[in-house]
Design a protein around this nucleic acid. Structure first.
Length: 824
DNA sequence: CAGAATCCTG
DNA sequence: CAGGATTCTG
């Protein structure tokens, strides 16, 4: 299709030879052919790239599923433990926190990793779950165990004090429960505990349990037990949000409904939380003692598992941190110091640090932003990546640092030889870690979960992608994405050009609107001085994106792909100039792509697109547009969503491979200026001529049209002036054309010069004066002859003038001609 | 009728 | 100068 368009266009140019006013325009058929050939070649390249891209997408798709699976796995919930089992809750909370954090990482990874299952984190998590064995009681925690849990979601720092466990409060009243909490409107009937339903991975099983639970609840209703919902509510909310996004588990919903929990406001009430609330009450129910006993065993088991998991995760976390640091400390320290610190604070194996961290955290609210940014997907990705690399390195020999980490992980075992102090320290550290995690999770959840969730779902219903992913991907573009990407680039082999950026490099984009023949506002206002690297209308193409043009080969092993792959198009951003073919306009079907904001955002988007356009991506899209690749459904989200308005894709293909040159994607003011100067030589330039003289511009239909339009406008002005002065001369009593002359100091010339050579920094060729004079006389004669009565009387004049074009100096072919010309 | 140039307007 | 409407051509 692209070829066709291009060819047809060129052919038309060649064949057409039509003219303004009946004068045939000279067009170089040869040049035309050449251009066509070039196009074809590039197209082939494009196809190859498309294939690659396609493959990538496929992988991405897989990863997605994988992530879901993981999520489910991770969603296992700790069964309620009796009074003596409180520690379980503790470990559970930690484990949850860690898991969530880690999972979050997974999530992000999934977003970009082709092989979800292979992500280190997920693997580790799985292993943990699988291998959980003897339980480690955290005696230290004691009855306070629940605290950690309760504290985690809300304000990570305040967990020790304000976040009194609502559960405990309500059930035992031994804890510093807040009355309000208990009185919360949300307090629901002391339903029987939902046992450990949550832990069951099997949805059906869970559903059954839920039903049973309902029945039981109906039977036993102990008013004495009120679930504190107020604070819990908040917490649940957050957690729910996270869970919902991460897990997207249907079973939970059924359960939550069952409990008849009045919390209508919540997006997705956490079944798990609900259950826990009900746990204690349940135990108080004698009638269910047996049942409880049975459950207890399971709970015990669960507890042990959870503990193990927690420990493992902690260990993993440390390892990740360590590795991450190792890798980044040497590279970009400054940029990630925050992250480093944050993690460090959470690290258990560095007492001093942890302590300090704890203190810091007390008044560390100000850092929330930083933390947030640090905890973006990119960070997780980085960490994961770091881990991978580390593993590779470890194969050769363990690194000292890692050793240190490894050793740190021994705490917690019941048989641990730790001294009391050590235990306390460990405990403290754990809490710190917990709180830190909480904070982190909260921030992340808030940031990624809240805003856009609804929109994405609507946009991509069929994809059934966890809502959170979209926001994530989208948000990722902003501050975080770039940094993440940059960091990724540290791993040279795995670097993938930012897909979004590549869009900008598509020359065709500006005019991409299929049949858009009229020039779009391609001209970007720039300062003449910045002739080079000036950002083209299409945006930040100038000079910076080149690196991106060397798309690193995708590392299959790493399988990292920018989030943007999955959600490459921040749709809202896909605005005007980029109604590009590539633009996933399809992504948001029916969406107004030319929203007013688009322009503003375009700049931002542009940079992203630049990279996106580079390499295979660009080409791929291109291909998808071709008839041969109709649906390209299997090609993954981005592709499937991409509606191709491929008209000008081919043009893009032409230029996509360009490298290093100063080719621009749009016409700049300098180009306009140059065109005006050229007008002194040629009034009717052919499109091929334009291409030759604007070699620094990537030609597409739009550009061509615009250039032609420019000259058309030039002519318009020129002829208007001619007619005006001719009539003026007539009015002035001039009787013979011979009396008319055009000199450099005449009015006419000044008018023209003012228009085409405003700065007067160009020496107008004498030939132009001649032509102008001829033109003036033509008009004069015509008018005198009364030909102006004929509506098309000017055509004859045009016909004459168009033959007067002279050769344009070679120097105009130079992209730098302006400098050269004006400096002479 | 499509495509191209011109005309007209802002 | 850009856009849209109109005209013209093959």
């Amino acid at each position: 299709m692209p070829d066709h368009d291009s060819d047809s266009f060129l052919n038309r140019q060649t064949k057409r030879r039509r003219v303004d006013i009946g004068v045939k325009r000279t067009v170089g058929s040869t040049a035309s052919s050449t251009a066509a050939a070039t196009t074809a070649t590039t197209d082939n390249i494009a196809r190859a790239k498309a294939a690659i891209f396609s493959a990538m997408n496929s992988l991405s798709s897989h990863s997605h599923h994988g992530s879901d699976t993981d999520s489910m796995e991770c969603s296992v919930v700790q069964p309620h433990g009796g009074p003596g089992v409180v520690s379980a809750s503790d470990s559970e909370s930690k484990s949850n926190v860690l898991r969530k954090l880690l999972k979050r990482a997974n999530s992000y990874e999934d977003t970009m990793m082709p092989f979800p299952g292979t992500t280190i984190i997920s693997q580790l998590l799985k292993n943990n779950i699988a291998k959980n064995g003897g339980g480690h009681e955290r005696g230290e925690r004691g009855d306070r165990g629940d605290r950690g849990e309760s504290g985690f979601p809300g304000s990570g720092l305040s967990n020790a004090s304000s976040d009194a466990p609502q559960e405990d409060a309500c059930s035992n009243s031994s804890q510093d429960s807040t009355p309000q909490e208990c009185l919360s409107p949300f307090g629901r009937p002391p339903g029987l505990a939902t046992f450990d339903i949550e832990r069951l991975n099997d949805e059906h099983l869970r559903a059954k349990r839920a039903r049973v639970e309902n029945i039981i609840r109906g039977m036993s209703h102990s008013p004495s037990v009120v679930v504190p919902a107020a604070s819990r509510h908040e917490r649940d909310h957050e957690m729910d949000g996270e869970r919902e996004m991460e897990l997207d588990c249907p079973p939970q919903q059924s359960q939550q409904q069952a409990p008849s929990s009045p919390r209508g406001g919540e997006v997705c009430s956490s079944s798990r939380e609900n259950k826990r609330k009900q746990r204690l009450p349940q135990q108080q129910q004698q009638s269910f003692t047996q049942l409880v006993c049975q459950r207890k065993e399971q709970k015990q088991e669960e507890r042990r598992q959870l503990k193990l998991q927690l420990e493992d995760m902690q260990k993993q976390l440390r390892q990740l941190q360590e590795k991450f640091f190792q890798i980044y400390d040497s590279t970009d320290d400054s940029e990630h110091n925050d992250l480093h610190n944050d993690i460090g604070n959470m690290s258990e194996d560095s007492p001093a640090r942890s302590d300090a961290g704890g203190d810091d955290r007390g008044g560390d609210d100000l850092r929330s932003d930083n933390e947030m940014s640090d905890l973006d997907p990119g960070h997780f990705l980085d960490r994961a990546r770091a881990l991978l690399q580390e593993q590779a390195l470890l194969a050769d020999g363990d690194k000292p640092r890692r050793e240190g980490l490894g050793r740190s992980k021994g705490h917690g075992g019941p048989g641990s030889s730790m001294h009391a102090e050590g235990k306390q320290l460990a405990e403290t550290l754990k809490q710190e870690l917990n709180s830190a995690m909480t904070q982190v999770v909260d921030t992340v959840v808030k940031v990624f979960a809240k805003p856009p969730r609804p929109t994405p779902q609507q946009a991509f219903p069929p994809l059934s992608i966890p809502p959170e992913r979209f926001p994530t991907a989208v948000n990722g573009d902003n501050p975080n994405f770039h940094t993440a990407n940059q960091r990724l680039q540290c791993f040279g082999d795995v670097i993938i050009p930012n897909p979004l950026d590549s869009f900008a490099s598509m020359p065709g984009i500006p005019g991409t609107a299929n049949d858009q023949t009229e020039a779009l506002p391609l001209v970007v206002r720039k300062t003449p001085s910045e002739h080079h690297h000036q950002s083209s209308a299409v945006g930040a193409h100038g000079g910076h994106h080149h690196p991106a043009l060397h798309p690193s080969s995708l590392s299959a092993t790493m399988g990292f792909s920018p989030p943007s792959f999955r959600q490459p198009f921040p749709l809202p951003l896909m605005g005007y100039p980029f109604q590009s073919p590539l633009a996933p306009t399809g992504g948001y079907p029916g969406k107004d792509r030319s929203s007013p904001d688009s322009m503003d955002l375009s700049r931002e988007t542009t940079s992203l697109r630049t990279k996106m356009a580079s390499g295979h991506h660009l080409v791929h899209h291109h291909r998808s547009c071709s008839p041969a690749h109709p649906g390209s459904t299997a090609e993954g989200l981005s592709l499937s969503l991409i509606k191709s308005e491929c008209s000008d894709l081919q043009d893009m293909a032409d230029i996509s491979p360009y490298s290093g040159s100063n080719i621009q994607e749009g016409l700049s003011p300098n180009h306009l200026k140059k065109a005006k100067l050229m007008f002194f030589y040629t009034r009717y330039p052919s499109s091929n001529m334009l291409k030759m003289f604007f070699s620094d511009v990537k030609f597409n239909r739009c550009i061509t049209s615009q250039l032609i339009k420019w000259f058309s406008n030039f002519r318009e002005f020129y002829y208007i002036q001619m007619e005006k002065f001719a009539r003026q001369a007539i009015n002035d009593g001039v009787t013979g054309a011979e009396e008319l002359s055009v000199s450099r100091d005449c009015e006419l010339f000044r008018a023209l010069n003012m228009h085409y050579n405003k700065a007067n920094d160009f020496e107008v060729p004498d030939r132009f004066l001649e032509v102008a004079e001829i033109t003036l006389r033509e008009f004069f004669n015509a008018i005198v002859a009364g030909k102006d009565v004929d509506p098309s009387w000017k055509k004859a004049i045009y016909k004459v003038i168009c033959k007067l074009d002279s050769e344009v100096p070679e120097i105009f072919k130079s992209p730098n001609c302006l400098q050269e010309l004006l400096h002479e």
